[in-house]
């Protein structure tokens, strides 16, 4: 029974991982550029939710879309101001561009918000459910379900709408898309916005049941890499499955081996997959 409990809480966390990793995989698939600051975007969203609640007394119904909007703008700005330019440069510039951004965000947060952990009150959304002996906190349930729904929604928008087709067309072949009258630059900016907005929602959701600190983004970035890598680069459904899987693996290893080693298991798995199948478990390219 405890094992089932662990698996369920792993799945709920995994759904949130899947959400922000979908954003990373979208960006990646679009332009073959990694956002090394992805986890730090999540961190910013967590603080955005925290301050929206403590300073403006806004509830989750407001701060979740609010964080998404703020991060969307940040994503577009980062694309226009930085990524668009470094993407044409040498590999070193591509890597250092967003990596430097990660450092700036992380330590600016450190400087502005101090190293102290903060958290939103536990009872922000209801208490704890008891479903057939499984105890699930309402905030985690809400987070998991909402994340799952939005990830699926993202997949549907990408595959079923004209806009999604345009985005995927640019991802597939930039020049061919241009010949079809699609503006790649605009689509890529949009992808960065949507990718960052996914971290906005995810961060606001995590903030409801997880501590918030300036350096939390570092391990979240790595988790996003792992998920994207496992799920195949550019694949939202892949990220969904891999995100849920990583959530469960993390929860199980924390339970079976010890919480300190949960990251060790995930990172080791990551390296193993990179070494054995550099294209990802479900990827093709």
């Amino acid at each position: 029974m405890i094992l089932l409990q662990v698996v369920v809480s792993g799945l709920l966390m995994g759904a949130v991982y899947a959400l922000f990793s979908s954003g990373l995989t979208l960006i990646w698939g679009m332009m073959n550029v990694v956002n090394f600051a992805h986890g730090d975007f999540v961190m910013l969203a967590m603080y955005a939710a925290f301050f929206a609640f403590t300073l403006l007394h806004l509830g989750p119904a407001f701060f979740i879309p609010g964080a998404a909007a703020v991060l969307f703008v940040l994503g577009v700005v980062v694309y226009l101001g930085l990524v668009r330019h470094v993407a044409r440069g040498p590999m070193l510039a591509q890597i250092l561009g967003t990596f430097g951004l990660a450092l700036v965000l992380r330590y600016a947060a450190f400087w502005a918000f101090t190293a102290n952990f903060v958290s939103l009150p536990d009872n922000l959304v209801g208490g704890t459910f008891d479903i057939g002996g499984l105890r699930i906190e309402a905030s985690r349930l809400l987070g998991g379900v909402l994340a799952l729904a939005i990830t699926l929604g993202m997949h549907l928008v990408l595959t079923r709408t004209m806009l999604g087709s345009r985005i995927l067309a640019v991802a597939e072949d930039r020049n061919a898309a241009m010949l079809m009258g699609i503006r790649p630059d605009r689509m890529q900016a949009l992808a960065w916005g949507v990718g960052a907005a996914s971290t906005g929602v995810a961060g606001a959701l995590i903030a409801m049941f997880f501590y918030i600190s300036p350096t939390v983004g570092e391990s979240l970035s790595l988790i996003a890499f792992v998920v994207v890598c496992l799920g195949g680069f550019g694949s939202v459904p892949g990220a969904l499955v891999a995100g849920l899987g990583i959530g469960v693996i993390e929860a199980l290893s924390a339970y079976l081996i010890g919480a300190v080693y949960q990251d060790v298991v995930v990172y080791a798995l990551f390296l193993l997959v990179l070494w054995v199948r550099p294209q990802g478990l479900m990827g093709t390219a």
């Binding site: 930085l82 591509q94 561009g97 990596f99």
Partner: peptide
């Protein structure tokens, strides 16, 4: 220090790789 470091990295990447 690391804010400055990060900013320098970004600027190098953007303007002078």
């Amino acid at each position: 220090t690391y804010i400055v470091y990060g900013a320098i990295i970004v600027l190098i990447a953007r303007f002078r790789p």
